[in-house]
Design a protein around this nucleic acid. Structure first.
Lengths: 185, 185
DNA sequence: GTCATCATGTAATCTGTTACATGATTTC
DNA sequence: GAAATCATGTAACAGATTACATGATGAC
């Protein structure tokens, strides 16, 4: 019989979890850590959301779960992706992207309405964001280090490149703001 | 009596609306258009959300509404920001930024899990994103044009600068991806 | 003794979206 | 005659968050 391609629509978080399960079977707890170590800087669901998503993947037939008893540790539920799950993952990745909704950026909103507030305080916020981006670059470097020698790193590496481009853009912009608000005085 | 600073916490969308009301009193319908013409590319609430937010601003004492009867046109509710509203807006702008939640980026997620799908299709998606960014730059140029001679344009202009930096970052990254996936063959 | 780690989940709530509903007037 | 603009809202539901709840083990 043919492989049924279900029409269940998956949320992006479900696909993220599915993608991580494609790399290795693991528990909700493991997944939370895996998220933090990998996709966390552009997709970071709450742990309760991860736990909520797992049973729905099982219900859809995209994963199976198995209770693993442990000594001196609580039992765990280990989830494993199914063939249908891999097909669904692939389908999601390849499906036409929804029109890119503008990324909601509260800092930009504050800048936009900057005339109603203190320029000094806004500058501080921009500097803080700049510092965050410097830190992000350090984190990306650390991720690069850890990925050394990993043969399956090409795609994750592309996302780190994105992170650097993004960080540099913000840093450059922070300079713009510094100049523009500095000149005004 | 002193100006009461209420502790009502405002959502970001409420603040966006409040910011637009600070520029001019207007109706929900006007606000929707104003959003599209100004902050729309980094904050674009649904119209139903704008209509939902307005009464809550009135309830909080941050705006007043007045029914304006019109000939040959439906009546409209015109909202005006209050002094307390301006104070609240300022307070929100100046308040410490919440730690910048990673911007959720489904495209990056797809790239991250790219090994499970067709590189060609992913490349097409990256190219599409690149095209979106070229278009964004055009739109930003158009906004620049329209803002010509506007004396209150400094801060909005800074957000357009951000948009360009951002767009260029994505475009540069799209080149990276093109190179990386091209070399692989 | 205290704190971090392992491990899973529920409940309440928030913020927002899409689709539905209505109806006159102006423009092509 | 059809479509866009003016104008406001409701209802259903989606997708997530934070806070709460529990309890053992290992490290310092």
């Amino acid at each position: 019989m043919p492989v049924e391609t279900k029409t269940t629509t998956l949320t992006t978080t479900e696909c993220a979890v599915l993608g991580l399960l494609a790399r290795a079977p693991q528990s909700g707890y493991d997944l939370k850590k895996a998220v933090d170590r990998s996709v966390g800087y552009f997709w970071g669901p709450a742990k309760s959301q991860i736990y909520a998503v797992l049973p729905s993947l099982v219900a859809a037939g995209y994963a199976t779960s198995r209770t693993v008893a442990q000594e001196r540790r609580p039992d765990k539920q280990v989830y494993r992706i199914t063939r249908a799950g891999r097909a669904a993952l692939r389908e999601w990745i390849e499906e036409a992207p929804d029109s890119p909704s503008p990324d909601r950026n509260p800092l930009l909103l504050k800048i936009f309405f900057g005339e109603y507030a203190s320029a000094e305080i806004l500058l501080e916020q921009v500097r803080a964001r700049r510092a965050d981006m410097e830190q992000l670059k350090d984190e990306l470097d650390a991720l690069d280090e850890r990925a050394r020698g990993d043969t399956h790193d090409l795609f994750p590496q592309l996302t780190r490149m994105y992170g650097r481009r993004y960080a540099d853009a913000i840093i450059g912009w922070a300079d713009d703001v510094e100049r523009a608000l500095g000149e005004r005085r």
